[in-house]
């Protein structure tokens, strides 16, 4: 797989980033380097190897269904850059999707 300019633009969009031309060129090189490193795996026979989904095979320790660590409304809103008590606010979302 090769990362090209259109793919960089698509990723930029998906990540909601605004990159300069310089940054885009740098990313293009970096990402292609990373991919070619990972592509070394293609030369190995992985037929009998199960995909590694998680670094640890330790099962997850489950939490009891007990109420804890709740924030008050005031605490929750405290660090918000935009709010109208009791809500967080964001610029009007036109697209209802």
């Amino acid at each position: 797989m090769k990362v090209d300019k259109p793919l960089i633009s698509k990723l930029e969009n998906l990540a909601k980033l605004a990159l300069s031309d310089e940054e885009k060129t740098q990313l293009l090189t970096d990402m292609n380097d990373i991919l070619s490193m990972v592509e070394k795996l293609d030369h190995l026979d992985t037929e009998a190897v199960a995909p590694l989904i998680h670094m640890s095979d330790q099962p997850q320790v489950l939490r009891k269904d007990e109420i804890k660590h709740e924030l008050s409304k005031e605490e929750a809103l405290k660090n918000a850059t935009a709010k109208v008590d009791p809500f967080f606010t964001v610029p009007k979302v036109i697209d209802l999707d």
């Binding site: 269904d65 007990e66 109420i67 804890k68 660590h69 409304k73 929750a76």
Partner: peptide
């Protein structure tokens, strides 16, 4: 039906006042 959320321990009561049932995880 559970007292708390999927991945954190804040309440799930329907119809509570806005932003009164949160935690650092749900935020």
């Amino acid at each position: 039906s559970s007292l708390t959320k999927a991945f954190c321990a804040d309440r799930t009561t329907f119809g509570a006042p806005p932003n009164s049932q949160t935690s650092v995880i749900s935020l």
